[in-house]
């Protein structure tokens, strides 16, 4: 057997598994966009573009705008906080190794627990944030953070931020360690202060890390389900219903696979654009 045959044989088990549990389900779900099909009742009927047209008319724009608000919020906020934590932990902090370990804790915690925890913190009747706001006299009445249209999305974004910022910290810290001290010394000799050397040395040197982290966060948040599902199930009045929630509810609550497939197909089309951008970027880095 030639080496390339052996090479192929070694990938084969992974490939078969990949085809059965990833590729087939992905394509299968998108094909449902063209069918009238129920989750529970047998039988299906080809309906052409009917589901997609209906989804475009009715659900697409609200879902897109909700998804974008969540995605941008849950990408930018953790990025800023995670970056700041990395800079702080890269400075002269006592017990730096210990803190680097500790700051990863929020990332380790299961997303369901993150949701429970922030539901409790934001709780309308006994929540600690309401308690503090009232004690400080900032609000006269408790705020129903998760139950009102204005605050539900932000509450979910904050919970998600708490969960993901450590990942960004780790990535940025790893990047910071690759920057040569000489560059900072050269900048200092040129008379650059801290802020200036941050913009002229740190940021350009981290460009690769920053793009990777932002692109991946964007892609993952664009399809994120769990935190939102547990905290609000898409409510109140659909104000946190993203594509992921919309597809899940169409399939498993309304049991309308045609609708779920149609929303899913549109969602996947948008997602593919970003994934292709990322893959091109990753290939370039890899080469």
């Amino acid at each position: 057997m030639s080496d390339s045959q052996i090479g192929f044989l070694l990938v084969l088990p992974a490939l078969i598994l990949f085809a059965v549990i990833i590729l087939y389900p992905l394509l299968g779900s998108m094909v449902m966009a063209f069918l009238d099909k129920s989750l529970v009742f047998p039988g299906e009927e080809f309906v052409g573009l009917e589901n997609i047209q209906r989804a475009l008319r009715r659900d697409f724009l609200p879902l897109l705008s909700t998804t974008m608000i969540f995605t941008v919020g849950a990408t930018v906020l953790p990025f800023l906080i995670g970056f700041a934590v990395a800079l702080i932990l890269n400075g002269r902090v006592i017990a730096r190794g210990f803190w680097r370990g500790m700051f990863l804790l929020p990332w380790l915690i299961p997303s369901v627990v993150v949701s429970f925890l922030w539901m409790w913190i934001f709780n309308a009747n006994y929540g600690v944030i309401n308690g503090m706001l009232r004690e400080l006299g900032l609000v006269a009445e408790n705020i129903n953070f998760l139950g009102s249209r204005n605050t539900a999305m932000w509450s979910v974004i904050i919970a998600k931020t708490w969960n993901t910022f450590p990942w960004i910290t780790v990535m940025v810290l790893a990047g910071l360690q690759t920057i040569s001290r000489d560059l900072y010394e050269a900048a200092a000799i040129d008379g650059a202060d801290r802020l200036r050397s941050f913009w002229n040395v740190t940021v350009p040197q981290l460009r690769g890390v920053i793009s990777t982290v932002l692109l991946l966060s964007f892609i993952w948040n664009f399809q994120h389900l769990e935190t939102i599902y547990v905290m609000t199930t898409g409510g109140p009045s659909e104000s946190t219903t993203t594509f992921a929630i919309g597809v899940y509810k169409a399939a498993f609550q309304a049991r309308d696979l045609g609708e779920a497939g149609a929303i899913g197909l549109l969602w996947m089309a948008l997602l593919s654009v970003i994934v292709i951008v990322y893959l091109r970027f990753a290939v370039r880095e890899d080469a």
């Binding site: 299968g28 993952w220 498993f252 893959l279």
Partner: peptide, 24 residues
């Protein structure tokens, strides 16, 4: 091609796979 197909799998929405996996 196979490598990047498998890499990109981490970016497919879980929720979408779930529907067909359920039926399967």
């Amino acid at each position: 091609a196979l490598m990047f197909l498998i890499l990109s799998a981490q970016m497919f929405p879980q929720t979408l796979l779930l529907i067909t996996l359920y039926l399967l």
